[in-house]
Simulated scan of single mutants.
Amino acid sequence: MSRYPSCLNLPRLLLGALLNPLGMVREVGALGLAPAWWQTFLRLVLPVLLLSVVISQVLYQIIPTGLPPEAMPGVWGFGVYSVLAMSIGVLGLAWSAHYLAELFQGRGDPDRAMLAVSIGLLPAWVGKVAAAFPWPWGNGIGLLLILYSLWLLYWSLRGILGLRRGNRIGLFVATVFCGVLITLIFGWALMDLIPGATPEHRIGTTWLI
């Protein structure tokens, strides 16, 4: 197994994503050889996903939501569902970026694509935790972090995959569309397969977070 770059240290990346995102993208983009996609997934994506889900689920149990018990999904069922659904989303985005890169006159690279997607989604996973706080502050901050994450994802794809000017926005839009579509398809299937992932009464929400 190759040595994992020190600049991909998780606390450092989280801090960089919030305080100096473009500088962090430039530093990661300058890596001569990106770690294998599965290394990035196991050492960067999975720990953040697990931490995000655990913290948000604990907060949902502590902070009153104002919803009846039958409108809340099970703690363990929804936790497992969240990790699986978000993992599929990350893989869907990364492989979409990899395969679509050549369509937009770039070079497909699954390792760099996974790295770009992982860094771009860091604020969104923080937003999942923020969304567990009471409305409207929790939802508002969570939404802002998701929008910020989309902006960072664009710059990550641009800086780490290195597409030419004029093709970057096209790749970003196509990648997000394909990634969201893959997540929705598998997310709905998982929601019906995992006991406790769906509340008895949805009250107008899909619970596909």
Rank of each mutant, 00 (worst) to 15 (best):
L153I: 03
G187Y: 15
F172H: 05
L163F: 00
W155H: 15
M191A: 06
L163Y: 04
V180C: 08
G170A: 07
D192C: 04
V173L: 14
I185Q: 10
R168H: 04
G179L: 12
W155V: 04
V180H: 13
L157I: 06
A189R: 12
L171D: 02
T183E: 12
W151V: 07
W188K: 11
G170K: 00
R168W: 03
G187N: 10
A189K: 10
L161T: 00
G166P: 09
F177H: 14
G179M: 13
V176N: 10
V180F: 14
S156P: 08
V180I: 15
L184M: 13
G159I: 07
V176P: 11
L171H: 02
L190R: 10
L181F: 15
L163W: 01
V173Y: 09
Y154N: 02
G159C: 07
I169M: 06
W155I: 04
V180Y: 15
L184D: 13
C178Q: 14
L163C: 05
L152E: 04
L161M: 08
M191I: 10
I169K: 01
A189L: 14
W188F: 14
I185K: 05
I182N: 10
L181M: 13
G159D: 07
G159Y: 05
N167R: 09
W155A: 07
L157R: 06
A174L: 07
G159V: 08
M191V: 06
Y154A: 03
V173H: 06
T183G: 11
F186P: 10
D192I: 04
V173E: 03
M191G: 05
L163A: 03
V173K: 04
